[in-house]
Amino acid sequence: MTLIAHMTDLHLRPRGLACYRVSDTNMLAERAIRALQALDTRPDALVITGDLTDRSDPREYAVARQLLSRLQMPIYLLPGNHDSTDGMRREMAGYPGLSETGDGKICYTADIGACRLVVLDTHLAGSPCGELGREQLAWLNARLHEDRRPTLIALHHPPALSGIRHMDAIGLTDAAALAEVLSPHAHVERILCGHLHRPIIASFAGKVMTLAPSTGHQVVLDLTEESPAQFNFEPPAYFLHYHSVETGVVSHMAYVENFPGPFSFYADDGVVWPGDET
């Protein structure tokens, strides 16, 4: 079996500074890493689908390096709109794939157990929107034709619309072109993304898209026509993508917080359940 942890949108800040004045994203990211370390089964890898930092500040990348150094597993990074391609390549040098991508987009492949990960870069300088571009799409098409193993595609901006209008307005600008590339490939079992700070499952190009919530604050669920851009502190979470020959890829959402339990499924002595009177 293969187990891949998927976190997103950490929005790390320089030490002592909150995100948007009220979100202690560094503390919340610390909790997420501790939750990952506490799992009974250690993941084979961690994928972080962008917005590792809040402003692509070297001090924020320094926090990221210190935080991620605690994990004894490969970590695969890609930039979001709050990061920058050049900043991530420079400040996170040494992480898989980042130093092998030249000076263009950060795109690379990785083998994780029986699965193949394909990492894409949607960062668009000066814009909250995302774009893959022709060159990266051609690269992706070539990678999908060369290997037919179960494949997960990781990118920051979700290609499918969510119905949250203010977030859809800053989505992936060339989603239709991505759909043309992905549609013929049945071995693409998951599209992993972030950006929306909510757990969202959708279909895109005949594939399952799993959009992970943030490890910090979440975007308010508002599907009205004029939904304002607001966030709250719903419980942070992340995804665990489990793969086996029998199941294919199965995605589980795991919460960062601790809750009461576990408890065994046993009734109290002497309890008679309805229908069991006889």
Rank of each mutant, 00 (worst) to 15 (best):
H145L: 13
G102H: 09
M27Q: 13
R59T: 01
G113C: 11
T151V: 09
P150M: 08
L124A: 11
P74W: 12
H123L: 02
T41D: 12
G133K: 12
R149C: 07
P96G: 07
V118R: 08
K105Q: 13
N141R: 15
M27R: 15
P58K: 10
E60F: 01
T122H: 06
P74D: 11
P58A: 06
Q72N: 15
G102M: 11
T122Y: 08
V118N: 08
Q66G: 09
D51Y: 05
T85A: 10
L36V: 05
P79K: 13
A38M: 12
N81H: 11
L98W: 03
G104S: 08
R143G: 06
D57T: 00
G126C: 12
R149E: 09
V118K: 11
L137T: 08
A138C: 09
R116E: 11
A29D: 05
V47R: 01
D57S: 01
A125G: 12
S23W: 12
L77S: 10
N141G: 13
L28P: 01
R55K: 08
H82L: 07
R34A: 10
A125V: 14
M27N: 05
R148S: 15
Y108G: 08
G80A: 06
R42T: 14
C129Y: 01
G50I: 06
L68M: 05
S84D: 05
N26V: 03
E60V: 02
A110F: 10
A32M: 01
A138M: 09
R31T: 05
D44W: 02
R59C: 03
G50C: 11
T101I: 02
S23G: 04
T85P: 11
Y61W: 13
M92E: 08
N141S: 15
L36M: 06
D54P: 09
L52V: 01
D54M: 10
R116M: 14
G104C: 03
P150C: 10
L152M: 15
S69L: 03
E135V: 13
Q72Y: 00
G50R: 12
T85L: 06
D86P: 02
Q72C: 09
P58C: 06
L124H: 12
L36G: 04
N81K: 09
L137G: 09
D40A: 14
C115G: 09
V118T: 14
D111I: 06
K105N: 09
V118P: 06
E100D: 15
L28V: 03
L137R: 11
Q136T: 08
G94W: 04
V63A: 04
R90Q: 14
A45Q: 06
G130Y: 03
D103M: 08
P43A: 10
